[in-house]
Amino acid sequence: MEKQNIPLNELKVGQCGTVSQLLSDTSMRRRLQDMGLIEGTKVECVQKSPSGDPIAFLIRGAVIALRSEDSSSVLMSLS
């Protein structure tokens, strides 16, 4: 079953998903896009920091740490 629209920051470590929508419309959106994060991109949650925020994600072969308030505006569909 496919779950829709889980915010990226709610992914558990080791969980994968596909970006369904970018909600942020600030410079963050551009930066995520520069990292190759667009609709349809596969993302894996790889590591949480000691305080649980930021969280590191595997995006197109690179590990990128994002803060929850930023990653919460990325909606994911889980497979």
């Binding site: 942020s24 990292m35 590591q47 930021p54 590990v63 990128i64 740490a65």
Partner: peptide
Amino acid sequence: PSSFTLELPP
């Protein structure tokens, strides 16, 4: 605080 992206290189 502004948004930030930080790469964790290999």
